[in-house]
Design a protein around this nucleic acid. Structure first.
Lengths: 144, 144
DNA sequence: CCTGAACCCTGTAGCCACTACGGAGTCAAG
DNA sequence: CTTGACTCCGTAGTGGCTACAGGGTTCAGG
């Protein structure tokens, strides 16, 4: 038996926000589900599984476009796995770059927080922002 | 002497994109500079310094609102430094949480990339997305 | 059968921190 | 005086949601 759910139930089952589910449908990530006569969406187990797939992909940090690709790959099981692997590789590189950026931030912040001054006059954080170099990464701002 | 620069020159000097400088002005982060008769912006050294302050704050991952606060603190040098310190502390906590999330992603991705299967049929990445739990963080998706 | 709470619908606007673009005006070198 | 680089403004787009407003639907209790 393929249980039918309303969008609210699917939302609770999957841990994906109700409005996010509608958003995924709007951008073509989730297929349009069948509707009741009055227009209510009803989801079957396949839809629920697809949504879990998406959620897990997001949890791993994949973007919507990447997840779209992964879903297509999952639908064609006899295709070579190379594309999925390359996607994951490229994503891993990005994740590692972000980690490096954040760790550089963390290190500077950790130093600055040892501030003993009672006034802003000699506050290390403010002084750093005003004068000194503080971050090794050149474009850390833009890849967030 | 206080060198006057056009916005393009300031952009090059500071490493902040020209349109970003106008954006900062629009949102009240940079004060409106004096203009030429025809409306061109002209920036002095003070403006350039303020912009560098902002850029460094962004490089450390502070948000616009936080930088606004930090700028105000920097302008009142006899104030206690406690607020700046608290801001930095709170920010450090966030940065550390992001690092933890990303490292969890990295670990899972690293495992999955050892995929030997020639087809998607047994691709570890796809299988993980379809079936298994993959991420320890409960809400890692939302705090990016 | 009626009421009212809890659900669902659509469409639009907001979030963050930019970035990009179009169409027009300005400036300085040759 | 022309040319090309600069500047202006306003608006719209990015990603990935989230939050309304203003309605319609469903169903359990009385």
């Amino acid at each position: 038996m393929s249980r039918k759910r309303t969008i609210g139930t699917l939302s609770q089952d999957s841990g994906v926000h109700l409005e996010t589910i509608r958003y995924y449908e709007r951008i073509g990530l989730l297929p349009e589900p069948p509707r009741s006569a009055s227009g209510y969406r009803y989801y079957d187990d396949t839809a629920a599984q697809r949504l879990r797939f998406i959620r897990r992909g997001r949890e791993l940090g994949f973007g919507i476009a990447e997840i779209k690709t992964l879903l297509q790959l999952a639908d064609h099981r006899n295709q070579p796995c190379r594309e999925a692997d390359q996607l994951a590789q490229a994503h891993l590189v990005e994740v590692e770059a972000k980690i490096a950026d954040l760790m550089a931030m963390r290190d500077v912040l950790t130093q600055l927080i040892q501030c003993q001054s009672p006034t802003v006059e000699h506050c290390q954080l403010i002084e750093t922002l005003e004068q000194r170099r503080c971050c090794s990464s050149s474009d850390g701002v833009h890849r967030e």
